[in-house]
Design a protein around this nucleic acid. Structure first.
Lengths: 178, 178
DNA sequence: CTGAAACGATAACATTTGTTAAGAAATCAC
DNA sequence: GTGATTTCTTAACAAATGTTATCGTTTCAG
């Protein structure tokens, strides 16, 4: 289904940009009108919790990122999206996506599937917080996405795991001592 | 939108059941084919984490519950749904819902909206875990849903908050001492 | 009604995490 | 290249939680 969407996107006009690290793609409070496909680099989606910056998700090459809830419901986004590394993205504009959708009404269910995938995605983010200790989650991240651990400053990873950088450093030490 | 859905449900056949406490509506591993509207009582959705039972959500009268992801995608459910208190539900069957949907294709976007709401729901479940301490989450629950705190055994609430019953008992003591 | 099970509070101790601070190393901006 | 910033580690102490166990109390099934 991800490839379905990718295939559809290929029929929609887009622009490609090369962005520096720490470039903001969408600020919290703005309403999303764009969807990004990551060709290279790394992007994170984060939440401002009373000044503390909490990374909710990392996006690596091959995936799409947007504040989909803001995009779909035309609400101000609760999240900020920014690059971590120098990143190349394809940018799709909402009006082009809408135009495509209107001319292909039979594919509304693709949007539905996509929304269901998003819901599923968040269920699993949520469950991973519930199920596992920070140490286990770090191990999982190491297994599932070593490239993230390798290429990204640790404080982003710590906030993703829900702990402080100090605690992450301790976990790393504990693991390396085995 | 919740009422939209409720209005639509009124056009779909349903059966009403009165169920004892601890009745299972859907077991993890089964594929959901039913949606429940709660008229009275209380239902929880829980996840089996290596034998440990983690309550993800409580559902009170007026809300609908199902393993929507399982229902939509026809996957085995990851969650179990069961009553906590004696509960009265209206049961809607998937084939009746599908029949309605097929005869009212203009309402596919209601399903889409519903899926988006679900995604939003889980985003906020997720965020509440990230943002707040268990103590703060307990206070929030007390404010937002005192009827849950009042009527449900504490170990369910503790697992919902992500802590042990012992720790919840300590939090309660700490709060009451102020 | 009665024995068994579930529930809730509490204690003691271990473990983990948060906080603050200091210092070394790597990276960045100019 | 050089000074400033960022990044990472480590230490010390405080605070919170987990674990295990005990002990009343309540609830439930028969």
């Amino acid at each position: 289904m991800k490839s379905d969407l990718r295939q559809i996107l290929s029929l929609i006009p887009s622009e490609t940009f090369c962005l520096a690290a720490k470039t903001t793609l969408l600020s919290a409070g703005e309403t999303a009108t764009k969807v990004y496909f990551i060709k290279e680099g790394c992007v994170r989606l984060w939440y401002n919790n009373d000044g503390k910056d909490i990374t909710c998700q990392f996006f690596m090459p091959g995936s799409m990122v947007a504040s989909f809830e803001s995009f779909s419901k035309e609400n101000p986004s609760e999240f900020t999206i920014e690059t971590i590394l120098p990143t190349t993205v394809e940018v799709y504009d909402k009006k082009d996506i809408e135009e495509y959708r209107l001319s292909h009404p039979e594919q509304l269910d693709i949007a539905l599937n996509f929304a269901l995938d998003r819901a599923n995605n968040y269920i699993h983010l949520f469950l991973s917080r519930i199920k596992d200790t920070p140490q286990q989650r770090y191990k999982d991240l190491l297994e599932q996405a070593p490239e993230i651990v390798a290429s990204i400053p640790q404080h982003y990873i710590a906030s993703y795991l829900g702990i402080t950088p100090v605690s992450l450093s301790r976990i790393r030490k504990r693991i390396s001592q085995k």
